[in-house]
Every structure is written in structure tokens, then in C-alpha cells.
């Protein structure tokens, strides 16, 4: 288990870019298809789910402090079911990471590098990610603190100009 420590602010900032890619590249097309001109309301509804998730996570943490999801899921639902839950969790992260990398690759290949193989674009990104992961969670926290404000500024700039 890694020993790195990150602050709450860093945690929050790390979570941000994980959904930004999906929220910018993929979601608008889907919501626009169904909601049309009322699309701007959809984030408000969607955020309710997010708040619920955070609430559950916080409550679980309060009840089982200092424990990981995998540890306490075994305590809650028993050993066998707990293992399944943890497997689903791990699989979920693998799945989500896959989706994000694919979104990124499709975006780049679809818009700029039409002839470049998808695997190359995705592979180069994964290489960079691996380099960051090798540094540990502290490094990822610091990188997010460094990059997210810049990305946010650019997005806001594009929105209002």
C-alpha cells in the first residue's frame, strides 16, 4: 500500500479532471439529443446523484474510518459478497479509465490526427500517465493542482469570450 499523503483540496482537485473530459467531450451530445434547448438544466439534476454518492462515501468513511472500500465492503456484506463488491469496484475503475482514455483518443484522432493509429495516441497518453503514477499519489495530487487551474481558466475563457 502506498504511503503518500494528499490533502483534502488535492483530493478534490484530482477528482475534477476525471469527469471533465467526459463532461466536455461526450455528455453534451447525449443530453442535447434528448433535452434540446433545456439542456442547461440537466447538470442540476445530475448533480443530485453526485451529492448522494459523496454523502454515502462520507458516511461510510465515518463509520469505518481508516479503512478502504474493499476492507469495509467485506465487513458489511460478508466475505464472499464483499469480494464480489470489491471486484466490481476495481473493474469499475478499470472500465472508467478505459472509457476516458478511449474518449480522449477518439477526440484526438477524430479531429486532428485523422491518419494516426488510435493505439498510438492512446498509448502515448498511457505512457505519460504511467510515468505520473510511478511517482505516487502525491505527485498526481501536485500535478492536478498545477494543471487543473490552468485548464479551468482556459475553459472559462472559451465560455465567456
Amino acid at each position: 500500500m502506498e504511503k503518500g499523503k494528499i490533502s483534502a483540496v488535492q483530493m478534490g482537485i484530482i477528482m475534477h479532471p476525471a469527469i471533465t473530459a467526459t463532461a466536455i467531450l461526450l455528455v453534451p451530445a447525449i443530453t442535447a439529443h434528448d433535452a434540446k434547448q433545456d439542456m442547461w438544466i440537466s447538470p442540476f439534476w445530475a448533480s443530485l446523484v453526485g451529492f448522494l454518492t459523496v454523502y454515502i462515501a462520507v458516511q461510510l468513511h465515518n463509520r469505518y474510518p481508516q479503512k478502504t472500500v474493499i476492507e469495509y465492503s467485506e465487513q458489511i456484506v460478508g466475505k464472499f459478497l464483499g469480494k464480489i463488491v470489491s471486484f466490481i469496484f476495481l473493474f469499475f475503475y478499470l472500465h472508467v479509465t478505459g472509457i476516458i482514455v478511449r474518449e480522449y483518443g477518439e477526440f484526438i484522432v477524430g479531429n486532428f490526427f485523422v491518419r494516426t493509429p488510435l493505439i498510438f495516441v492512446m498509448g502515448s497518453m498511457i505512457f505519460v500517465c504511467a510515468f505520473a503514477v510511478r511517482g505516487g499519489v502525491e505527485i498526481i495530487g501536485r500535478l492536478s493542482e498545477l494543471i487543473v487551474p490552468i485548464v479551468m481558466t482556459i475553459i472559462l475563457f472559451l465560455l465567456f469570450c
Binding site: 502515448s124 505519460v128 510515468f131 505520473a132 505527485i139 501536485r142 500535478l143 498545477l146 494543471i147
Partner: peptide
């Protein structure tokens, strides 16, 4: 962009 990320990662380490 990849290069900048690599450099930044290195600097963060």
C-alpha cells in the same frame, strides 16, 4: 502536450 506533462511530472517528483 505530452512533453510538458512529462516535464511537469518529473518536476513534481
Amino acid at each position: 502536450m505530452l512533453g510538458i506533462l512529462l516535464i511537469l511530472t518529473h518536476m513534481a517528483t
